[in-house]
Design a protein around this nucleic acid. Sequence first.
DNA 1: CAGGAAAGATGCGCGCACGCAAGTTTGCGT
DNA 2: ACGCAAACTTGCGTGCGCGCATCTTTCCTG
Lengths: 218, 218
Amino acid sequence: MTTPRPGLRERKKQATRAALREAALRLAVERGPDQVRVEDIAEAAGVSPRTYNNYFVSREQAIVSAVTADREARIAAALAARPSGVRLADAVTEAVVEQYTNTGEREHKALLLITTTTALRKAFLDTTAGIEPPLTAVIAERLDDPGAHTARVLAASVAAAVRIALEDWLRPSGNPEAVRNLDAVGLVVPSGSLPDRLRAALSPLAPAFDAAERRTQP
Amino acid sequence: MTTPRPGLRERKKQATRAALREAALRLAVERGPDQVRVEDIAEAAGVSPRTYNNYFVSREQAIVSAVTADREARIAAALAARPSGVRLADAVTEAVVEQYTNTGEREHKALLLITTTTALRKAFLDTTAGIEPPLTAVIAERLDDPGAHTARVLAASVAAAVRIALEDWLRPSGNPEAVRNLDAVGLVVPSGSLPDRLRAALSPLAPAFDAAERRTQP
DNA sequence: CAGGAAAGATGCGCGCACGCAAGTTTGCGT
DNA sequence: ACGCAAACTTGCGTGCGCGCATCTTTCCTG
């Protein structure tokens, strides 16, 4: 339903976007993030620099998007997939945790990179805002909230909480030595457990979800 | 306590900052926002363009800051001033509403400008994030939450809710005619009442505040 | 009050984001 | 199969954000 017809045009676009973000990530990992010019990324993707800017508004966004990809959509989908019987707060929490937990090999190197560079960390944290719209839609449906006023606030709060959790998680970024050590062992987790931090950050919002849920299904 | 000694250096800095934002706003109102180059602002403030960039990272931020000024601090102060007897959720709501309500004559023209320009609207909405740190501090104190983990989440949620309220408030920005009409009458309020919108956006968070408050003062 | 340290202002240079006005490709109706 | 309209790509030009090195101002301490 969401894919009536891919269309050749659309496929090419997605291919270009993918090529750009992969190139951006690869180059950033190979040389340092500061040693990658837009021109390089565009060339590696077989595209003009101007076109690159039609897809990404900043170099950081391109690199980060290779890790973030379509996390927003996957979170929304994960939430929609949960049985409607469970408490909404729990469903949201688990959906979020789930999507931030599956960490592959490639993401490790990338996360490493992001941890060390300020600009990249900022860009990475900014991606949390992207989960807002899809989350709003799903929550609004569960709450039977056509105007989606409270759904929007709740979704935005979730995004903010996730942001805070991630902030804390990759805080000790000013310590290159520790990072290097972790790199040697193949670990990324800078400090503590991400799932735990996510749950902790989201838990204060649970009462708000409960109240909203109670309001529609007494 | 917060002002042990102004110091000449600090005063000059604030003066420069003020000169820059006033110049930015004035020029933006006189000609269009797009007809103001950084060079103009710097010159009007009697400062080099490079120095301007030491104070503001973007032209939009400079213009908007003339309206936002130190709203963050004032919100925090307003909250801290409330008697500790009242419900935290109410105290926060009223503090926020109060600080977004006092709208002078100059802000009207500025708001007008912001409403019409996409980039300015974006910058304006981004300022809501600035209330997060001071709000966190005050909330953490009320909750007696040293680590401020829940306080941070709540403060961030408030910021997000305020953002949404403002978004809705100045939504019909694509309608220059209506704006012009309002201008003629001296009204800015694009649609509905801002205080109402703020209260509506914040209300879903009340249960979260109640629960947090209950946890510390049973 | 002298003199050094710390903070700030400024000039320079580099990439970058993006509007604009072509040129090129894809989609669709007939 | 043709051809037009819409979508996308690209080159060009402009102003901007900011790192870096240098010079000036403010501050502090003996």
